[in-house]
Amino acid sequence: MARTRLLFACLALAVPLVPATASASPLAAPLHASGLVLSVQPESGPLRTTQLNCEPSGGLHPHAEQACDQLTPVEGDFRRLEETGAMCTMELNPTKATLRGKWRKKRIDFQQVYSNPCVVRAFTGKVFDF
Score class of each variant (00 low, 15 high):
residue 2 A to S: 11
residue 2 A to R: 14
residue 3 R to T: 08
residue 5 R to L: 14
residue 6 L to R: 04
residue 6 L to S: 06
residue 7 L to A: 15
residue 8 F to Q: 04
residue 8 F to C: 05
residue 9 A to C: 11
residue 11 L to N: 08
residue 14 A to T: 03
residue 15 V to Q: 05
residue 19 P to Y: 01
residue 20 A to E: 13
residue 20 A to R: 11
residue 21 T to A: 09
residue 21 T to S: 11
residue 21 T to F: 11
residue 23 S to F: 08
residue 24 A to C: 10
residue 24 A to E: 08
residue 24 A to N: 11
residue 24 A to D: 13
residue 27 L to W: 13
residue 27 L to T: 15
residue 29 A to R: 06
residue 30 P to K: 01
residue 32 H to G: 03
residue 34 S to Q: 13
residue 34 S to H: 12
residue 35 G to P: 09
residue 35 G to I: 15
residue 39 S to G: 07
residue 40 V to S: 03
residue 40 V to A: 00
residue 44 S to G: 08
residue 45 G to K: 07
residue 45 G to I: 07
residue 46 P to G: 00
residue 48 R to Y: 01
residue 50 T to Y: 05
residue 50 T to K: 02
residue 50 T to C: 03
residue 50 T to D: 10
residue 51 Q to D: 12
residue 52 L to A: 00
residue 56 P to A: 01
residue 57 S to K: 13
residue 58 G to A: 12
residue 58 G to S: 12
residue 60 L to G: 09
residue 61 H to T: 10
residue 61 H to F: 07
residue 61 H to N: 06
residue 61 H to G: 11
residue 62 P to I: 14
residue 62 P to A: 12
residue 63 H to M: 14
residue 64 A to I: 03
residue 65 E to Q: 13
residue 65 E to N: 11
residue 66 Q to R: 15
residue 67 A to P: 00
residue 70 Q to K: 08
residue 71 L to F: 12
residue 71 L to G: 02
residue 72 T to V: 00
residue 72 T to C: 00
residue 74 V to E: 02
residue 76 G to H: 10
residue 78 F to L: 14
residue 80 R to Y: 14
residue 81 L to C: 15
residue 82 E to M: 10
residue 82 E to N: 13
residue 82 E to F: 09
residue 84 T to M: 15
residue 85 G to N: 03
residue 89 T to I: 03
residue 89 T to H: 00
residue 91 E to M: 05
residue 92 L to Y: 05
residue 92 L to F: 06
residue 93 N to C: 00
residue 93 N to E: 05
residue 94 P to V: 09
residue 95 T to Y: 05
residue 97 A to I: 06
residue 99 L to Q: 12
residue 100 R to S: 01
residue 104 R to C: 01
residue 104 R to A: 03
residue 106 K to E: 11
residue 108 I to A: 04
residue 110 F to H: 02
residue 110 F to W: 05
residue 110 F to P: 01
residue 111 Q to S: 09
residue 112 Q to H: 11
residue 112 Q to A: 05
residue 113 V to L: 07
residue 114 Y to D: 05
residue 114 Y to T: 03
residue 115 S to P: 07
residue 115 S to M: 13
residue 117 P to Q: 12
residue 117 P to D: 12
residue 117 P to S: 14
residue 118 C to A: 02
residue 118 C to D: 02
residue 120 V to Y: 08
residue 121 R to N: 14
residue 122 A to G: 05
residue 122 A to F: 06
residue 123 F to C: 15
residue 123 F to Y: 12
residue 123 F to V: 08
residue 124 T to F: 10
residue 124 T to V: 10
residue 124 T to R: 10
residue 125 G to V: 07
residue 125 G to C: 09
residue 125 G to D: 06
residue 126 K to F: 15
residue 128 F to V: 03
residue 128 F to Q: 01
residue 128 F to T: 04
residue 129 D to F: 10
residue 130 F to V: 15
residue 130 F to G: 15
